[in-house]
């Protein structure tokens, strides 16, 4: 048992920050991201014997995505679409800061699954197949959801396109 705990702890300490950042991008809410990661790590710990030699990263990521979707389903009538953390207390310092806020707001307008597709593919750099495995859908669905999500992002935040144009 001690060896198991040590092995789990070593894996979890290495991965928890990455999972937290993924969870934050999935939710836009720091506290909920922490809750998701806490639960994901606990579920991995529960099944560590089996997962240790397979793919604990993939399992943890799947828990993050599924639990977030489940949470959203329970709360979708309660949560305004713009419920992302937004540091709006002061003037925007840079165009980068503005872009971050715009993107967070735009992400909040996606469905949880579309948002997960964007985060897993463009932040976690997962392949289409790995994203499909994490979401429990087909590769074709990932591709179509990716296209749809990107289109929605552009529609939700046309300012981003303008920003990008100015950078070129």
């Amino acid at each position: 048992m001690r060896d198991e705990r040590e092995a789990f702890s070593a894996w979890a300490r290495e991965r928890q920050l990455g999972l937290l950042r993924t969870a934050y991008l999935l939710t836009g809410d720091h506290q909920r991201a922490e809750d998701l990661v806490q639960e994901a790590l606990t579920k991995v710990a529960l099944r560590w014997r089996r997962l240790a030699d397979s793919n604990p990263d993939g399992y943890a990521r799947r828990v993050l995505v599924n639990d977030n979707i489940s949470w959203w389903r329970r709360r979708r009538d309660e949560v305004p679409l713009e419920n992302a953390d937004r540091a709006t207390d002061g003037p925007l310092e840079t165009e980068y800061a503005e872009r971050r806020l715009l993107l967070l707001a735009a992400l909040a307008r996606l469905t949880p699954r579309q948002r997960a597709v964007v985060v897993l593919r463009y932040y976690d750099d997962l392949t289409v197949d790995a994203t499909a495995e994490a979401l429990g859908v087909s590769a074709g669905t990932v591709k179509s959801q990716t296209n749809l999500a990107l289109r929605r992002l552009r529609e939700a935040a046309p300012e981003l396109a303008e920003l990008l144009k100015e950078e070129r």
Binding site: F8, S9, A12, R13, Q16, L17, L20, R21, T22, Y24, L25, H30, A33, E34, V37, Q38, L41, T42, V44, A45, Y96, R99, R100, L103, L104, V118, V119, Y122, Y123
Partner: peptide
């Protein structure tokens, strides 16, 4: 996305898990 996530830090959740 990397810019947004790069600022995120959190407590150690491992022992509690």
């Amino acid at each position: 996305l990397n810019d947004i996530a790069g600022d995120i830090t959190g407590p150690d959740l491992v022992d509690r898990a």
